[in-house]
Nucleic acid binder design. Structure first.
Lengths: 192, 192, 192, 192
DNA sequence: TATGAATGAGCGTTCATTCAT
DNA sequence: TATGAATGAACGCTCATTCAT
């Protein structure tokens, strides 16, 4: 516990985040403006930068929180027992990740942190994603010759591939879920 | 004949590209500034945009050319017949793609073109990558239950995953080639 | 002739300077805001900084121009032949220099340039001041035992001293002109 | 007894001043930051302003104290009896005043106090300077036709002029002491 | 084609100072 | 006295891109 933050500090931070969410609600992530956030929150610009290193730091927090909530949702209840169920469980999350090109790019950029000290909210969710899917692996009739962990990493790799192609003109005939299903069926298929 | 370019035009374009390469040589891709390129090439700023739609168009050309050369290299000779060979064949390409975080992000962003009409040099290389790897699939003892094409897409997905983790502090204990090998062995392993 | 500036460049610069003068007219030098200048001139902020290194650079130009005009005025006609005439000739200039504490401080700060390359409009006027006064020295019954140049430097020193005391609560009982006269009479008095 | 200060109060003040001196030692006057001072002293920012009206008040105290010490030094022993001696007596003081452009500007700004009620440490030293030099006037063979007080004001004016030119690229061929000597010889020379 | 001045919109910064606790 | 989060109001900057010549 480095900083047992004061009440006022927490309130201000909450105000800023709430206002940022409101702005995003209205115009999307890409259109978020620091100026609008501070104006709406009724605080000074300097205060914003006392709370967040820069705009991207706030963005990471907001997007990370959203992804965390969607991961919570995906984790709730009994685990999925086949590929279709896995896909529909992850659907809300994948849907959010691809909601805006800007969001997808930002998530990819922050998914890997440059240094351990800098591991942010988004990088965290990538870890949670793996953990979650790893936990699902014993529940279905999937291949057992490789570790659940490796299978989960593969699921993530295919999810990213499918999402990236989502933004790709060449491949839009085939929608995300269908492509993802093809990948997963091949990847998770039990071996002999 | 779309562009029966004049000699001077071609010279200017060549000067710009040469200067851009020189700038990148010195300071890397991320630090490339249009201003420096035109100054070094001895032309006006406007001229730059008469030759390239925007800065990223030049970037795509430069990076695309580099990737194409590396793909040519990977395609030369007899195809690889096992996972280790595949990996070492693709090594120079993957190495280039991960030379800078900026380059990796840019490549990913352009790997899917925004519109069919705009398929650029980088998107092209992703297609070539698939084709190349697809051609390698019959050469080794890999799974035959799914199409070579799908296998190739998987190889690409795993390459991207492994490269992304390359930039991630959390996972740097395991280097790219080793992780990629683990992925490919699981992905390409023959089924019963 | 390094830059035989284009017509448009000159026009933009003139617009900016004109607008700055208008702003100062209204609210004084200290209240000048870059934002108001560019808004009034109808140009982009970036343009301002393409023309002037920073706000102070514009300030130097404006104040330097004003001082130059007042020096021209002081230089016009037959030179003053006694201390009283010198003082009244320089009065408009000294009056301007002390019009605002901000202006006085800025002039002093820029009166000496750190490097030859940085000698700006204000430093120039200090040189002109010396030259002008030097030229007046043979016209009156002043001491002849030291060079006109040295006398002029003394006049400047006493002017600065008297102006500085102008801003000083302790010494405001005696106004600038009276104090300056006392100094000059002692300084310029013929020797034996 | 205006301030029968408590022990802790005095200690805090001393800590702040000590830390400020340490900061200045390291990085000079201009680089002094309230933040660094309070951090080093281990107190909160607000505490600083409970002890000093503002940052400049501390600056004035520090610089004023330094100047006072140097004036004490200049005042010690028998008074100087010629121009050379005057100059060497004042040398340490002038040297300090010109140690940084920032210091020189600040001293000039505070040499005249904004209001009688606010005469600060620096303005005080200017008064002491005049008094000190006034006391030296009868000791040498200087002009007697004007008051010692006026002569002292002139000495100060010339000192300032010489110091100002010290910072000026145009005039650095001639160093401070030499220029100051030229001025004083002319100013203090006995008349007929 | 070539020119290069102008654009533009927002970000991040600055840091002494205030004020509610 | 002491605390430290919050203030504030511009400034300077960025730099790819446009457009009139």
């Amino acid at each position: 516990m480095i900083k047992p933050k004061q009440k006022r500090t927490l309130e201000t931070r909450a105000k800023l985040i709430a206002q940022a969410k409101a702005c995003i609600q209205e115009a999307g992530y890409e259109a978020l403006r620091v100026e609008d956030v501070v104006a709406g929150a009724g605080v000074a610009k300097g205060t914003f930068f006392a709370h967040f290193r820069d705009k991207d730091a706030l963005m990471e927090i907001l997007i990370g929180a959203e992804m965390d909530a969607l991961l919570d949702q995906a984790a709730a209840g009994a685990g999925p027992t086949d590929v279709e169920q896995i896909i529909s469980r992850l659907h809300p999350l994948h849907s959010f990740v691809t909601c805006e090109r800007y969001v997808f790019d930002l998530i990819l950029r922050y998914s890997g942190a440059a240094a351990v000290a800098e591991i942010g909210p988004i990088a965290m969710t990538f870890g949670r994603y793996i953990e979650l899917v790893t936990g699902w692996m014993p529940l279905g009739d999937y291949r057992k010759d490789v570790s659940a962990d490796l299978l989960a990493e593969g699921v993530q790799a295919f999810a990213v591939q499918a999402m990236a192609l989502q933004f790709c003109a060449l491949h839009q005939t085939q929608r995300f879920d269908k492509r993802f299903a093809r990948y997963l069926k091949a990847w998770l298929a039990p071996v002999s």
